[in-house]
Design a binder for these strands. Sequence first.
DNA 1: CATTGTGAACGGATTCACAGCC
DNA 2: GGCTGTGAATCCGTTCACAATG
Lengths: 219, 219
Amino acid sequence: MSRKKAPKSVIKRLPVYLRILDNLIRRDVEVISSRGLSDETGFTAEQIRKDLAYFGAFGTRGTGYNTSYLRDKLMRIIGLDKKTRLVIVGAGYLGKALTRYNVLKNPYVDIVGVFDANPQEVGSEIEGIKIQSIEDIPEVLNKQNVKVAMITVPAEAAQKVVDSLISLGITAILNFAPTKLIVPRKVQVHNADLTIELQSLIYYVMEEEKEEKESRIQK
Amino acid sequence: MSRKKAPKSVIKRLPVYLRILDNLIRRDVEVISSRGLSDETGFTAEQIRKDLAYFGAFGTRGTGYNTSYLRDKLMRIIGLDKKTRLVIVGAGYLGKALTRYNVLKNPYVDIVGVFDANPQEVGSEIEGIKIQSIEDIPEVLNKQNVKVAMITVPAEAAQKVVDSLISLGITAILNFAPTKLIVPRKVQVHNADLTIELQSLIYYVMEEEKEEKESRIQK
DNA sequence: CATTGTGAACGGATTCACAGCC
DNA sequence: GGCTGTGAATCCGTTCACAATG
């Protein structure tokens, strides 16, 4: 029963399964096969079965997976059965977008603070949450046990902000600043670098155009 | 000389190299070794050499890589030597963040339109670009050849928007809506799903806490 | 002689194929 | 009979180790 630790690639797919299950449950679908999940996600059915098998045997042979049951299991596995407290540092458009999205659509997180260095922003509200000064971070983090932070400050400011957050007990960072953060081993950093996504997309567009041009020459 | 097609993982690293090179050039560093790039990026030196080798031999043995030369090569490889025209559909906070960032920091793209369905947003300006109605998309795309779109509309609206964009000639999509898009084979979709990033980060936080708890029990 | 470029070895993730079970 | 769960085979990307070279 005790299984090998699931690789990163598997963990990245779990939230996808969860979202599909949410949709299915909303549409009153009670059972789904791995093939059905394959159609919805684009991953192969075998892969889906393997992924789930890292954590247990959740299906019924001959039938498939009970959507509510599997959703419940996945919530526990990912750690969404309890609310995660987090702070957002940087209240530009991106910080505001993340605040708004999570308040409205993501009941599994609890935003305990949104911070910005710009005094003009401080005091204004976003979805009922007051933007506070960066200088107030220590006070807020000392009062509450918070492990997770989202960083949406400019690249130049990111490292300094992160050093301070880590000294205040943050151990997991979702970094939107386009820079490499230097952190102690025990701190998790996930980079969500939108420039990289865009540039790699552009690569494939250019490649396609090149191929088209070549095939035109051949004719 | 004709090499194997570079895998996706390699393409995702190219923009990282590019950013490091930009920084080095700004600091007047003229030569960097694969080891040096390794320190800056966190990837291994061998991997960096292998990655670059997919596209040619850009270094000098015994010395390293000339930063300007390599930057130039990478720009060409990724396709950033010409400006890429793109549209942004959805002018919520996220759409505005992307517009702003790309206008100010990304000289390789040319935003030819920002669109929103909300009449209250239409007409307002963001970094000098006027937000237009979604209904004006066909007119804009018929006038200019645009291949790339960023989608920052709500999940429910995304598929409809994308169908329309594809019929107007869009072939590459950076999708921020948390939903799977169904598109013809030839259309590239890159998903930049921020919920997935956050949830997989939460997984690792929970796992760490579990481990901590277990080790405490052992004592 | 430091550093690149690359074939060979390795390891991790995906796919295959089928046994196990409802 | 249909679908899950999983060992075995395969594929693909990373690391190793070293020959090539400025």
